[in-house]
Amino acid sequence: MSTAATADASSSGDTTEGSVRLLTLQSEDGEVFEVKETIATQSVTIKGMVDDDCATSTIPVCNVTGRTLAMVIEWWNKHEIGAVSNEKELKEWESQFDTIDDKSDRDDVYDLLMAANYLNIPTLLDCCTSAVAEAIKGKSTDEMREFFDIKSDFDEKEEDALRKENQWAFEN
């Protein structure tokens, strides 16, 4: 997975662009991004702040690193309402989740999921969860435990019984 180099290249530093307001977002680790309001309000959380007139100064986005926030903004730009979405480009962006093989892929998608959850961006959340599901559907129970950082709390007998009951699901 790659991170976008700059988040919103079109931003010229003005606080307005035509009639479009720019919002300033600050990540947990201090990176600052300027994003069009129309784009950022894909986040239900940010939309709430805008509606309540609480988005006048820098909006702190706690729990989300600059690296992840840049990915979120890349997503926003591709999914801007009214923008001509390039199907191919979208597919390409989404295809980065096709394989979640190593630890860093897993951590990236984890960060993005948590950000989507925290910022309440339903479309991104759906996209990430279904992508993860696609990537893990063939995994073994051990791989699942590793992926989700879960310890089995079965005793041996219980697990055997349950495996026997669902034996067919372990076969190809």
Binding site: L113, S130, A133, S140, M144, F154, E159, L162, F170
Partner: peptide, 28 residues
């Protein structure tokens, strides 16, 4: 980096039932 349970449920809700039957054996 432990997934919150609602996110896990969200992910599992996209899975085919065969995968789910296997994953019943992940934990209690």
């Amino acid at each position: 980096s432990t997934f919150p349970s609602d996110l896990i449920a969200g992910i599992l809700s996209y899975l085919p039932v065969k995968s789910l039957c296997r994953f019943k054996c992940v934990s209690k």
